[in-house]
Computed example of a mutant assay.
Amino acid sequence: MKLTNDMFTIARLDEARHAADIRLNADHLIYRAHFPGQPITPGVCIIKIILELAERFLTTPLRLQQVKNLKFIQPLSPVRHPEATVLFDHLDLTDGTVKLRGSVIHGEIVFTKFSLIARLDAIV
């Protein structure tokens, strides 16, 4: 299930910096359950957003293989911070393996730091 154009939209892709400005949809069903009145983006959804954006930059489907390091520093709320930037410091495709490292930020606020490994996914 894709979250793009449902839970979030892409406001801007910066190919040169491997950065994407996104806008969270505070009316999405997941936020009614997580948590009513004080919604935050679930960690699994943050990982899915990162993978979907990496797929856009690499123009190929990916499947998560390993979470090497994942730090949730601040809650990502669609109400308090409906806009965020996913910045890939490292986005490398070698022999069918993709190494992803970066952060989810808004200005000086760091929400998440990540280091993930994905594989090319032939099944869409």
Results as ranks from 00 to 15, higher is better:
21 D>Q: 14
119 R>L: 11
68 K>W: 00
88 F>L: 03
64 L>Y: 01
100 L>E: 10
14 D>K: 06
106 H>P: 08
3 L>G: 13
59 T>F: 08
111 F>T: 12
86 V>C: 15
85 T>H: 06
71 K>S: 15
111 F>M: 11
16 A>I: 04
87 L>N: 07
87 L>Q: 15
76 L>S: 08
39 P>F: 09
37 G>T: 11
62 L>P: 01
59 T>W: 04
71 K>T: 12
57 F>V: 13
47 I>G: 14
97 T>S: 13
77 S>W: 00
38 Q>N: 06
13 L>P: 03
31 Y>S: 08
36 P>V: 09
59 T>V: 12
122 A>Y: 06
5 N>F: 03
105 I>A: 11
82 P>A: 02
67 V>E: 07
89 D>N: 14
85 T>W: 00
53 L>K: 04
76 L>H: 05
51 L>R: 09
86 V>Q: 00
66 Q>T: 12
43 G>N: 07
67 V>I: 15
72 F>C: 11
21 D>L: 06
96 G>V: 05
87 L>M: 04
116 L>Y: 01
82 P>E: 12
74 Q>F: 02
42 P>D: 05
37 G>K: 02
13 L>S: 04
7 M>T: 13
3 L>T: 02
6 D>I: 02
60 T>S: 05
91 L>V: 09
25 N>T: 08
83 E>W: 03
98 V>E: 11
6 D>M: 07
6 D>A: 08
74 Q>V: 08
95 D>W: 03
47 I>S: 07
38 Q>K: 09
119 R>M: 06
56 R>M: 02
95 D>F: 05
18 H>Y: 04
39 P>C: 02
104 V>E: 10
124 V>S: 14
84 A>T: 06
89 D>A: 05
62 L>E: 03
34 H>E: 02
117 I>K: 14
109 I>W: 06
